[in-house]
């Protein structure tokens, strides 16, 4: 009887931390535009203390991460986002 079960030892162990080949959620054609007024979108990339989450965690491309950081800083200047949340 042919063994249909995949050989368990061959399956690569997927480490939970590494977001491998995850496409950047902000680039691509129907991605939302980064805008300092869009606090709902920016909040998704802020920690609960209000700090910008590093791109290695959110797997955002470096170009978009720079735009994101600039938008967050502008929103903070215009009191749309807090500098720190305690």
């Amino acid at each position: 009887m042919k063994n249909f079960l995949p050989d368990i030892t061959q399956i690569p162990i997927r480490s939970p931390f590494l977001k491998r080949k995850k496409s950047c959620p902000l680039s691509g054609e129907n991605a939302p535009k980064i805008d300092y007024k869009d606090t709902k979108l920016l909040k998704k990339y802020l920690s609960e203390r209000g700090k910008i989450i590093p791109s290695r965690v959110t797997s955002v491309s470096s170009k978009k991460q720079r735009e994101l950081a600039q938008a967050v800083k502008r929103a903070r200047f215009m009191a749309l986002l807090p500098y720190k949340m305690d």
């Binding site: 903070r76 009191a79 749309l80 500098y83």
Partner: peptide
Amino acid sequence: GLKKLAYKI
């Protein structure tokens, strides 16, 4: 409109 600021100015 009149919005609440994220921090006091």
